[in-house]
Design a protein around this nucleic acid. Structure first.
Lengths: 122, 122
DNA sequence: CATTCTACCTTGTTTCGCCAGATACTTTTT
DNA sequence: AAAAAGTATCTGGCGAAACAAGGTAGAATG
């Protein structure tokens, strides 16, 4: 007898909006550098895009299994060794496609949103 | 014994990217007009944002149950009656929040993407 | 040696978009 | 009038992603 409906709040929508976008962001971050998980979280956070570990680790593994990324271990001077990820050739190709996909999507959204203002001026 | 991994293709990513964004688009379309399902699909399609009925109807119902939309039946001169949706007061408030959310998200993605170019120039 | 910190990983839940149907009513055709 | 086609609505099941809330293992610190 739980309230199954009305599950539309802003926080949830924010989480939904980033689905599939994180993948694009991570490939972008790794485009010409290598980084490990905490690096990536830090960089995303500095762009106001908060991500938690439980999200990032499965995503990195997924991208690695898909052949987009590969990693190598690197010793740290202050702690356990780290998995540093870089793009594969396939990863670079996918990044190009995702850039087009994101461009088309954001253009579509902006077109729909701006239609409101146009209608206001009629 | 199926290949459970490597399930990262562009088509799937496109579907993921639009999660939560469709909600924003539909509220935007209804900001100052009323429309029924086929209207909405048509307008989204003209912005290159293809949506199928199986996606839209549950979404409209969800938004209605959340108090964002309400509808009224209207007779059609050529076919069955139609459910015309409009924004409620809560829907208008949510639209404002989603506009900020979308703005922040797209700005974050652009910042991350453009960081690549900046690093190239260092 | 015990504690804290760092870095990695996993399980279960929720939500969404999509596919593939079904239902119901209206209009048109035969 | 009966059958066919068209319009508009809705539903069940599936796959994928983000998150919460854990856990493991080793290094640094006291």
């Amino acid at each position: 007898m739980k309230p199954k409906s009305a599950r539309v709040n802003i926080e949830n929508t924010k989480a939904q909006m980033r689905k599939g976008i994180l993948e694009f962001c991570i490939l972008s971050l790794l485009a010409d550098t290598h980084a490990y998980a905490s690096d990536i979280i830090e960089q995303l956070k500095s762009a106001e895009l908060i991500v938690v570990e439980g999200t990032l680790y499965p995503l990195l593994t997924r991208l690695k299994n898909a052949g987009m990324l590969h990693y190598h271990w690197e010793e740290s001077s202050s702690g356990p060794p780290r998995k540093y990820y870089t793009l594969t050739q396939m990863g670079k190709a996918s990044l190009l496609e995702l850039q087009e996909t994101w461009g088309a999507l954001s253009q579509a959204v902006n077109q729909i949103t701006q239609r409101i203002k146009n209608q206001h001026n009629e």
